[in-house]
């Protein structure tokens, strides 16, 4: 059996890749996909713990998280479409009317 620590390490690596992607990527869709990667790495953590403890609640939380991520995806893509219609660009560096 693969020890718990491996799963945790894998999900930590995935989470880091996702977080780094959000900071490095400049395309709104790519950033959004990186956020999804972060959420899924958390799901992996929950499932790993849940299976290790023989406790079902961790897997139930994953269902809730998946639902939330789906709702977030719907809204996020809507926002991205709205901004693309007005600007014809998905590069977040172009979104600079409001100064940083």
């Amino acid at each position: 059996m693969i020890p718990l620590a491996w799963y945790l390490a894998l999900s930590a690596v995935l989470f880091t890749i996702g977080a780094a992607g959000v900071l490095i990527k400049r395309n709104a869709i790519a950033m959004f996909m990186c956020i999804e990667l972060m959420l899924n790495s958390v799901n992996l953590t929950f499932v790993a713990f849940s299976s290790f403890f023989r406790d079902v609640s961790g897997q139930l939380i994953v269902f809730i998280v998946m639902t939330v991520a789906a709702a977030e995806a719907a809204v996020g893509l809507g926002i991205i479409i709205a901004i693309f219609r007005n600007r014809e660009s998905l590069d977040v560096d172009d979104a600079s009317i409001l100064k940083l």
């Binding site: 945790l8 989470f15 996702g18 977080a19 959000v22 709104a28 950033m31 959004f32 956020i35 972060m38 959420l39 790495s41 958390v42 953590t45 929950f46 713990f49 961790g58 939380i61 998280v65 977030e72 809204v75 996020g76 926002i79 991205i80 709205a82 901004i83 007005n86 600007r87 977040v92 979104a95 009317i97 409001l98």
Partner: peptide
């Protein structure tokens, strides 16, 4: 455009922070 931009920034950074919060919940659960 201002409203679009505000919404997109809020969305990206808000979901980014939610992911951190969720990872925190997962680790505390473990």
């Amino acid at each position: 455009l201002r409203s679009n931009e505000s919404s997109m920034k809020y969305f990206i950074l808000g979901s980014f922070s939610s992911a951190f919060l969720l990872y925190g919940i997962a680790l505390v659960y473990g």
